[in-house]
């Protein structure tokens, strides 16, 4: 149950990342209403206080918007949506590149490796 989150990083941040990924993948659409705090808490087994903090943090960076008495909604602001896509992409790439460099791969190794991997993957899927 608690396996959805790891214990070394604040759960409110992990939950915020999860919601951002759902927005990027289209699982949550722009303007869509998020589940209530309690519903989300139940779904992911997290304290409602933590969920409420996640919603507040996402609201502060304009990713969601809380309308009084109606609930919390995904933003429809194109600029914000674009910047979440960029931010998450850069985050994942940074982790990947860091790990490769720690093992001693050069930038050329990384680039050619990634190119080969993607073209092979493309062939298999074609």
């Amino acid at each position: 149950m608690a396996d959805m989150f790891h214990s070394q990083k604040p759960i409110y941040q992990q939950l915020a990342d999860r919601i951002k990924k759902q927005i990027i993948s289209g699982e949550l659409s722009p303007g869509e209403k998020l589940p209530s705090i309690r519903e989300t808490g139940l779904e992911v087994n997290v304290n409602p206080n933590t969920v409420s903090r996640t919603y507040r943090e996402l609201e502060m960076v304009n990713i969601v918007e809380t309308k009084r008495g109606q609930g919390t909604f995904v933003t429809e602001d194109e600029g914000v949506l674009r910047s979440i896509r960029e931010e998450m992409k850069n985050e994942i790439i940074t982790i990947f590149v860091q790990e490769m460099q720690e093992m001693g791969y050069t930038n050329d190794d990384i680039q050619s490796g990634l190119g080969e991997f993607l073209s092979k993957k493309g062939e298999n899927e074609a």
Binding site: M1, A2, M4, F5, S7, I11, R38, G41, L42, V44, N45, V46, N47, P48, N49, T50
Partner: peptide
């Protein structure tokens, strides 16, 4: 755990739990 999440009113209540099952309560 799900019962706690659903039925506690954290606006008004304080819940104190003793437990050995830390993994169970880690996220709540």
């Amino acid at each position: 755990v799900k019962g706690l999440i659903s039925f506690i009113d954290l606006e008004k209540q304080l819940v104190l739990i003793t437990t050995h099952e830390i993994r169970e309560v880690e996220s709540i």
